[in-house]
């Protein structure tokens, strides 16, 4: 009983900020308003999406999100492993964990626009990166306002969400499991591939979910790093919503994106189960 009453504020919150907006989005997506202001049911908002251009935008978004996830794993897994190994050693010796993880989390406390503008200073033609490259006698790079820049920005912004779940799984792996593998004659490489990696998969999978979905829907990163030339589905939704007459199409796009996100969650879940790991979400 106590639990039930305590949930009322949460319920009010859910109705106001989850159910009501969802209802409005569905309402807009399946209707058009004519000049007289009357609503009528239609599927044309969805039909519009199937023009090749919009399919291409969705495909681009998925591709960018996919690349970002891949780079986040390549960069994030070793980082998480190194930090976790150090912390495990210190904890085993009865000391406090290092603050290294904090270094990855700290930039997130800064305003996102500030962080993005810093990249402009780094990547612009006469920026920090090119001054450095020319100092070394290397050719200049012009990557601001390209697809590379968008992936770079996405990876930069979301990598803490990959490192944290992997770290939190790695830190909890029981030492005795590793010792057992070593006792049975496994060398370091074998221990990693056969024991640590499979045990850390739930962390990787939840990292993928935490990077892939935001990367798929974000709009400010692609807007900023591509100079508007590379429209992703998030930008398309934003653009349509800012225009009062585009609300219906924008809502339809949001629903399509939600279905897409839902499907990818599901795929991830199946993948996770097939690994015989515990369910992380």
């Amino acid at each position: 009983m106590f639990k039930k009453t305590l949930s009322y504020p949460h319920l009010v919150w859910m109705v106001l900020f989850v159910i009501a907006p969802m209802f409005l989005i569905f309402l807009y997506a399946f209707t058009v308003t004519d000049d007289g202001g009357t609503l009528s049911f239609t599927l044309e908002n969805f039909a519009k999406f199937f023009e090749p251009m919009y399919i291409k935008i969705l495909f681009n978004s998925v591709w960018i999100a996919f690349l970002s996830v891949v780079f986040c794993i390549i960069l994030g897994y070793p980082a998480a492993k190194i930090i976790a190994d150090r912390d495990r050693r210190r904890i085993a010796m009865g000391k406090k964990a290092t603050g290294l993880l904090m270094l990855f989390v700290m930039p997130m406390w800064m305003n996102v626009m500030l962080r993005l503008y810093a990249w402009l200073t780094i990547l612009q033609p006469d920026g920090v990166l090119n001054s450095f490259l020319s100092l070394l006698g290397l050719p200049k790079l012009d990557i601001m306002y390209t697809q590379t820049a968008v992936v770079l920005g996405t990876v930069y912004d979301f990598i803490p969400f990959m490192i944290m779940p992997i770290y939190s799984v790695l830190i909890k792996i029981d030492d005795s499991v590793i010792e057992a593998a070593q006792d049975l004659g496994a060398n370091k490489t074998r221990v990693f591939w056969k024991v640590i990696l499979p045990l850390s998969m739930p962390g990787v999978v939840s990292g993928i979910t935490m990077v892939f979905l935001p990367a798929l829907t974000s709009f400010y990163i692609s807007d900023f790093f591509s100079g508007g030339q590379f429209m992703l589905i998030g930008n398309l939704i934003e653009k349509n919503f800012k225009n009062p007459v585009g609300r219906n199409f924008g809502s339809a796009l949001s629903i399509i994106l939600m279905i897409f996100a839902f499907l990818s969650m599901h795929v991830m879940k199946i993948f996770n189960k097939s690994n015989r790991q515990m369910d992380m979400y």
Partner: peptide, 17 residues
């Protein structure tokens, strides 16, 4: 011009893509 606004958004999407 209300109907033109929607056209502009579509034109602009096509230009950027």
């Amino acid at each position: 011009n209300k109907s033109r606004n929607a056209k502009l958004t579509d034109i602009w999407t096509r230009v950027l893509n």
